[in-house]
Amino acid sequence: MKISKDASRKAAEKSFSEIQQWMQHQLLHPQFAGDYEAFVKSTSKLSAKEHMRIYQRSYIARLRDCMVAQFPALSHALGRQLFLQFADLYLLEYPSKSYTLGDLGQHFGAFLEETRPDKDAEVKESWPDFMIELANFEFLVNISFDEKADENYQKATAETKEEALQLVPVFHLLKHNFPISEYYKEAVNDRNPELPFAQESYCVLLRRDYRLGLFEIYPIQYHFLAKLKETQSIAQAKQFLINQFKVVGDELENHWQQWKTKWLEEGFFVKR
């Protein structure tokens, strides 16, 4: 396709910076028709617009793929089409500013909160709460997989003295208003879970030997582990349960022995 002398002169006047800002705008906002001929040469096979369209298509497809990879359970919960609609809007509102795709979904939970359909309603629906909790959880899973931590530890065993037990360095203790951990495991293992009703749940997300582990726990265990994480002292964690929850000492000791056996197997503890 030939362009006029005037158009040719105008095209030649575009600076390096102008050209890049124009192209980036075309990627982020493909719905606005651009002056393609002023920037892009046509070939015998494709028009200037069709050449540009290859980049536009790849831009959104690549980032959509990344969002699905970072939020597989949320993608299942919303259904792929609706998830992609949310993802597209998110990418417009929060275009990536990071050199790594690992950060792409870092604001997704906040975005869902900001744009929830019942934002201004007095009575809120519960499903947006579930989606927001799930999004925040899934991003934490991504962070935990690769976060920096001292992995040069010695594993604790049944013989390790209680005073020497310490929680594994990557150890996240989580409380949710929905059964997030259970739903997540079902979804990523392709077991097609139904959307859950609200139900308080507690879980541990940890990394041992560079592998993630996810374990549901009881509320009383959550409080015990929270105190242990805070104080690094099993004695203080036990005392906390006795004081706050009126647990009888002997009963607690029985529970603790069972918890300890299970948690040692699951890799909760390293040797101090």
Binding site: S58, R62, D65, A69, G102, N142
Partner: peptide
């Protein structure tokens, strides 16, 4: 078919498939 240049497979870890049995 529509394909993407520079696929992301090599830039994003498949974290969900990297869990130990838990």
């Amino acid at each position: 078919i529509q394909t993407v240049s520079n696929p992301i497979d090599f830039m994003v870890s498949n974290v969900a498939k990297d869990f130990v049995d838990s």
